[in-house]
């Protein structure tokens, strides 16, 4: 109540803004981790999630199509394998299954894209 919890976020330089296609994704290597980074240029927003689709354990989410759904235009990514869709904000599965993917904060400074690792 009234106290702020500070979470240590390590901002990792991922790439330059023009490395990621407009309204598309790319995969970022962080140690042994694979992170999918999305340049939602239509909305001027950036998102990041795990690259692994939990449905069939495929490292492919960065190659999925992004878009929006619903009245509130929730941003989402659809896995290219079987079109399971996930919210880019909460990581929740939007196609009626119990999957959950990890999301990461993203910030852009001076044309450089950073992913926040908690």
């Amino acid at each position: 109540m009234g106290t702020t919890t500070t979470v240590d976020i390590e901002w990792v330089l991922a790439c330059y803004t023009d490395d990621v296609p407009e309204n598309g994704g790319a995969c970022v290597k962080h140690g042994d981790e694979q992170i999918a980074l999305y340049n939602f240029s239509r909305r001027g927003e950036w998102y990041a999630t795990q690259n692994l689709c939990p449905h069939k354990q495929q490292m492919v989410l960065s190659r999925g199509m992004i878009g929006s759904t619903g009245d509130d235009c929730t941003p989402k990514v659809a896995c290219p394998f079987h079109k399971k869709a996930f919210s880019l904000i909460s990581g929740a599965c939007l196609t009626g299954e119990d999957y959950q993917i990890k999301t990461y904060p993203v910030k852009v400074t001076d044309g450089k894209v950073y992913i926040g690792i908690v």
């Binding site: 309204n23 939602f40 239509r42 909305r43 999925g64 199509m65 992004i66 878009g67 929006s68 759904t69 235009c73 941003p75 989402k76 659809a78 079109k83 869709a85």
Partner: peptide, 10 residues
């Protein structure tokens, strides 16, 4: 309207 999706894009 909106930002498109995996159905209308292709």
């Amino acid at each position: 309207k909106g930002d498109g999706c995996e159905v209308c894009k292709p």
